[in-house]
Design a protein around this nucleic acid. Sequence first.
DNA 1: CACGTGACCGATT
DNA 2: AAATCGGCCACGT
Length: 103
Amino acid sequence: MDNNDSFPQRVYHILAAIPEGCVTTYGDIAALAGSPRAARQVGGVLKRLPEGSRLPWHRVVNRLGLLSLTGPDFLRQREALVAEGIQVSSNGQIDMARYRWRI
DNA sequence: CACGTGACCGATT
DNA sequence: AAATCGGCCACGT
C-alpha cells in the first residue's frame, strides 16, 4: 500500500485484505490506514463506497462485534456475514474472539 | 478559513 | 451493565 494514497484508497486496500469468514473493526482499519483515531471516517468511507464495488464492506463491525448499521442495511450485512459462515445473533452481534482478523 | 457531521472509541459515571 | 461524555479527524458546505 502506498503512503501517498488518500485515506479512502487506504481503506479500500485494507478492506480487500480481510479474508472471507473474518471481520475487523472500524478502529483497526483506521489504525492500519495510519490514523488510529479516525474510526468514524472509516464508517464514512464505507457509506460512500463506489457503486458496484466488490469490496467486503460487510466484514466491518464495531469494537464490540456489533453491526453498526440500521434498517435494511443491517439486514443485508447480517445476511452477507451468515453467507460466509459467520454466526450473527438476532441482535446483530458476533463473537469477536472467534472471527476477528489481525495481520 | 470555520463550522457541522458522523456505519467510532475509551474512559467515566 | 448500561448510559453518557469528550475526543477524534476526514469531508462537505
